[in-house]
């Protein structure tokens, strides 16, 4: 977003707003990962505890790692397109 059109007070206002949003964005991502990795990895309800096959050794931890890397890569591509749109044709 182009911030040069705003004065200092407005920039400060936006800064505060973005900080507040960061928190809710974080929780949103947290929940997305839990959702995704629970649904993809946990399918066996013959015991109460998460088995080692489901958990750290295997699925859930790999799923978390992969999700973070996935989001990071999407972010890179997304930022590239954003930069292109800002600096390219205009």
């Amino acid at each position: 977003m182009d911030f040069t059109q705003f004065n200092d007070a407005e920039r400060k206002h936006l800064q505060r707003m973005m900080e507040q949003k960061q928190m809710s964005d974080f929780f949103k991502m947290y929940n997305t990962i839990v959702d995704r990795c629970f649904n993809d990895c946990i399918n066996d309800f013959t015991s109460k505890a998460i088995s080692s096959k489901e958990a750290s050794e295997s699925c859930v931890s790999k799923c978390m790692d992969k999700f973070m890397k996935h989001a990071e890569r999407v972010n890179q591509r997304y930022a590239e397109v954003g930069a292109e749109m800002m600096g390219g044709p205009k």
Binding site: F6, N7, D8, H13, V74
Partner: peptide
């Protein structure tokens, strides 16, 4: 700073920011 904040512009900027965040989340 004694500068006025244009609330209408702030609301528009917020909407735009929300739109880009939402788009990103949907792509992910």
């Amino acid at each position: 700073a004694n500068q006025t904040v244009n609330m209408q512009n702030m609301a528009m900027a917020e909407q735009e920011l929300d739109m880009f965040t939402d788009l990103f989340n949907r792509i992910v």
